[in-house]
């Protein structure tokens, strides 16, 4: 059991990373990667949603008729997302305001749907929970990395702290949409072209 969980950890974070290898679920979260703080909050929300949706759907998996499977999945996922939304509004109002509609868009994040569908509905609750957790982590690591680079180059700061002096000319493009596209492409290129072949050889 422990061994199995360990390999799941490695698989979901490294060799089968949701973003780098499967290129899933970048829709809703890529948009907030121009600030590290927002990205971290968003990623916590996503990890919370994906692990608990997987967990709760796995508990009721035998009761779900196959025809309405999708609808029930979406219902349960929206349920957890609304909880995240309410919690943010109550305890982190400013971040909630900045994230705007993107919190709600966790519902349609392909990772959440993909993990519950591919793993949660076939496996018992605890492994489903862990699978969601590790997938969410693998996903978050990449996004936080992107956010650090974007905020550093685009605003000269990380997590709101100015790091590059006032002479730093901000790369506006990094804050805007194209910056995220190029950066993600570059990271995928490096990982797929260089690191993954090495890991696979081992």
């Amino acid at each position: 059991m422990v061994k199995k969980n360990n390999s799941m950890f490695k698989e979901n974070i490294i060799t089968n990373n949701p973003i780098l290898v499967q290129v899933l679920g970048i829709c809703s979260t890529l948009a907030v990667t121009n600030s590290v703080k927002n990205t971290i909050v968003m990623c916590i929300g996503l990890i919370f949603t994906v692990s608990l949706s997987s967990f709760s759907l796995s508990i009721i998996r035998k009761l779900i008729p196959s025809k309405v499977r999708m609808i029930i999945e979406v219902l349960v996922i929206s349920f957890w997302v609304i909880i995240v939304d309410l919690a943010l509004k109550a305890y982190l109002p400013e971040i909630s305001k900045q994230l705007g509609p993107y919190v709600g868009l966790i519902i349609t994040n392909c990772i959440v749907m993909g993990r519950t569908e591919a793993f949660g509905l076939q496996n018992p609750p605890i492994p489903s929970f862990l699978d969601g957790l590790t997938s969410g982590l693998g996903y978050s690591i990449v996004l936080i990395f992107i956010a650090i680079i974007r905020e550093l180059l685009g605003a000269g700061s990380i997590y709101g702290f100015k790091l590059l002096g006032s002479n730093w000319v901000s790369w506006n493009i990094m804050i805007m949409a194209p910056g995220a596209f190029f950066l993600l492409a570059l990271i995928i290129w490096i990982v797929k072209g260089y690191f993954l072949p090495k890991i696979e050889k081992k």
Partner: peptide
């Protein structure tokens, strides 16, 4: 180049 085919090239095109 190796690694660019697939997702990465799509992202670069979308960026442009």
């Amino acid at each position: 180049p190796k690694g660019v085919e697939g997702a990465a090239i799509s992202l670069i095109i979308s960026g442009i």
